[in-house]
Amino acid sequence: MILIAIITLGGIGVVSSGLLYVASKKFEVYENPLVAQVQEALPAANCGGCGYPGCSGFAGACVGAQSLDGLLCPVGGAAVMNRIAAILGKDAAGVEPKIAVVRCNGNCEARPRVNRYDGARNCAIAASLYGGETGCSYGCLGYGDCVTACTFAAIGINPATGLPEVAEDRCTSCGACVKACPKGIIELRKKGPKSRRIFVGCVNKDKGGVARKACSSACIGCSKCEKECKFDAITIADNLAYIDPQKCRLCRKCTASCPTGAIYELNFPPPRKEAVAAAGQVSEEKTN
């Protein structure tokens, strides 16, 4: 009895292992071993921030490319790119650390509701339907598509303001939220020395009066900041100011000049008293 069992089971084992061997040979897919090495060096977040489908796609692209210019793993940053460069014997392109910033500060007080949205809570759906619950058709809808898109839990809606906030220590600047936002509010900006940066927290392109009526913290395109800036970092287009992060020297003059408090500065030492009054409460919340 035992003998029969041993023979049967042994026979099944031999036949199966033979089949597995044949299958593994026949269906083998050749892969450059370098790809596996590069993939090992990557953070394995599979966030797609590099523009390729997951880390293995990016690894393949790195191995296949002539030079590493234009290839960047935003999550790993310079360190990872240097390691990849070492594996492949290619030069790594310079990397500048970036971070996501939310360019809307139309919180519940600044931007009163004019209607009530009752559809599926999803920004893309609301945006394809109409301009949004407030008078500002450019601002944040607040249904959190950016939150869903983020693989690192680095962005979340603040229930008090109804607006997304970025957790700086977790943001890897993969850009998933930038792509997810149907209003194009989130921007990847230079992280800046000591994480200090200044930006316009508004994307409303309506004329000043219209924008102001819809939201008290809107940029009205008055160009006061443009005149104030000594480095030509600020440009006005479509009634909206934009601060070029490459040119901005973080002198903070524009912040004080803005009549609606639409320019925000992050991670600066606490401003002097008169500046607090000018910048208003909203920016304080943002700084904290």
């Binding site: 509701r113 209607n115 009530r116 009752d118 339907l129």
Partner: peptide, 10 residues
Amino acid sequence: MENKLIISPS
């Protein structure tokens, strides 16, 4: 209840 128009997709 607030007296604002309600918007939803069809």
